[in-house]
Amino acid sequence: MRHHLWKTPALTALIVVGSLTLAACSDDDAMPGMNHGAPSAGTSTTPAAGFNDADVTFATQMIPHHQQAVQMSEMAGYTATTPEVKKLATAIKAAQDPEIKTLSGWLTSWGKPVPTPSHGGHDMTDMPGMMTEEEMSDLGNTDGALFDRMWIEMMIKHHKGAITMAKTEQASGKDAAAIALAKKIETDQTREIATLQRLLGRLPIG
């Protein structure tokens, strides 16, 4: 049966035409979902040339790192008492949710596994700035001004960890889009740390 299939002229022609069509699409399409102002992050037609292990590590680790920040931001949306904290939490979630999707798309296009959603940093605490399950539980059991203070302090630590990871990607990565996103993360979260520190200084002590 296998010999019959490969001796069928019409099927052979379809395979050739299909291959040419896929090649043309790969050349013409610019992966519109991968924006950030940089070239696309490698496609299935050029997997080895466009990225390296550092890019894969960056995307694989930044996804659960961002997921935890989003979880913390959602907690602040329900529990924080300071309007400025709620506003910043909303901004953090709005920025990092799309970045999670972008990072996931890159891993898929590179043929690498996408991390499943994690809650509380289980088995991920070796990453810079990642909260433990106990820390996340403590935050969830806190309210009032104490919650605001704890949330800010934890988010500063979390952001500093993300900046460390972003700097590593900029120094060691190969994919232009991944490096550009790392630079964006460093810039955005450095600015947010300054805002968090200002907010922390305004909170009552104790």
Rank of each mutant, 00 (worst) to 15 (best):
E192D: 07
E153M: 11
L103D: 01
T190R: 05
T132D: 08
K174S: 07
L107H: 06
G77R: 08
I100S: 03
D138A: 14
V56L: 13
I92R: 02
T60M: 02
A30V: 13
G201K: 12
T142V: 13
G201Q: 06
H122D: 14
H159C: 10
T8L: 10
S137G: 13
Q71Y: 15
A91L: 06
K160L: 12
M154L: 14
A76I: 13
N52D: 14
Q71R: 04
E186F: 12
T108R: 03
L22R: 03
T46H: 14
M150Y: 02
A30Y: 11
P117S: 07
S73T: 10
A30R: 12
D123M: 09
T102G: 08
T82R: 14
P115C: 08
W110I: 01
A89P: 00
P128L: 01
H36Q: 11
D148W: 00
K174Y: 00
H122R: 14
L103E: 00
D29F: 09
L203T: 05
Q61P: 02
A162V: 05
F51V: 02
W151G: 01
H3C: 07
F58W: 07
G111H: 04
S109Y: 03
P113V: 11
A178F: 02
A180L: 10
I163D: 02
S19R: 00
L14V: 15
P113N: 12
L88V: 11
L103I: 13
R2K: 04
A95I: 09
P83M: 03
A182N: 05
N35G: 06
M124A: 06
P128D: 05
M150I: 06
L88T: 04
G206K: 14
G37D: 10
F147H: 04
A69G: 10
H159G: 04
T142M: 11
T81H: 01
L200S: 03
T43K: 05
I193Q: 02
H119T: 15
W110T: 01
G105E: 03
T8E: 15
G206A: 12
S19Q: 05
T187S: 11
A38F: 06
T190Q: 09
T57S: 11
P32F: 06
T125D: 14
R191T: 15
G206C: 10
N52M: 06
P9H: 01
E99N: 08
E186R: 05
T79I: 15
G206H: 15
T102W: 13
M75Y: 08
D188E: 13
A76S: 09
M131L: 12
M72K: 00
T8G: 10
T79Q: 02
Q170R: 10
A76Q: 00
I185F: 07
H3W: 07
Q68F: 02
A69N: 05
I15R: 01
P32Q: 04
G140P: 00
S44H: 12
M31A: 12
T102E: 14
S19D: 03
L200E: 05
A162P: 07
L146G: 08
A182Q: 03
T90E: 14
W106R: 03
A89V: 10
M75P: 03
D28R: 09
T195S: 09
A41T: 13
P9G: 00
L11E: 08
M127A: 13
H122G: 05
L22Q: 08
M124P: 14
K183R: 13
H3E: 11
T116C: 08
V70M: 00
T108K: 13
P9Y: 03
A41R: 01
G144N: 03
K174C: 05
